[in-house]
């Protein structure tokens, strides 16, 4: 017996798999020194993205099977993606403030728009799908 509809599990599992692979690729690139301005090198930031990737990927198979543990890992990954997306958004704000205070020579939104932020935006539709499956769940 499955915990939720297999079809929904497959959709959510497939989305998580794609996100997991993207997070993993970008995380590894960051750990190994980055690639241009779009993906700057960031050892620990890259490590965090790899951890998010591992969390998403851990839930893929069981989501396909309709097991709630699969969904658990996807929700865990969503939480982590939100934490790091919001963290880098705050850091972007801090950089802007430093520029306004005259402590930074330039402030480039493009350079500060780190992968953790745009990946977080890509995660939002998955969050919506996961929310649909967990409407009845309490804390």
């Amino acid at each position: 017996m499955t915990d939720f509809e297999i079809g929904k599990g497959k959709t959510i599992g497939l989305y998580a798999a794609v996100l997991g692979v993207v997070y993993l690729a970008i995380g590894v690139i960051e750990v190994f020194g980055g690639a241009g301005d779009a993906i700057p090198g960031d050892l620990f930031g890259g490590f965090a993205l790899v951890v998010i990737a591992a969390t998403f990927l851990n839930g893929v198979k069981r989501s396909f099977d309709g097991e709630h543990i699969g969904l658990s890992f996807i929700i865990g990954g969503l939480f982590l993606a939100a934490v790091f997306g919001i963290l880098y958004l705050l850091l972007m704000g801090a950089d802007g403030l430093m520029f306004l205070l005259g402590e930074a020579e330039e402030f480039s939104v493009v350079a500060d728009f780190r992968p953790a932020i745009w990946l977080f935006l890509l995660v939002l539709p998955l969050a919506y799908l996961a929310r649909e499956l967990t409407k009845e769940v309490t804390w």
């Binding site: 709630h68 969904l71 658990s72 890992f73 967990t134 009845e136 309490t138």
Partner: peptide, 21 residues
Amino acid sequence: KKESKWTFTDMLDHVFLHKAL
């Protein structure tokens, strides 16, 4: 309690208390 098969606490504990992760 309102009927639900599992709680968010159970779900998140699968992840945050995971042996490897």
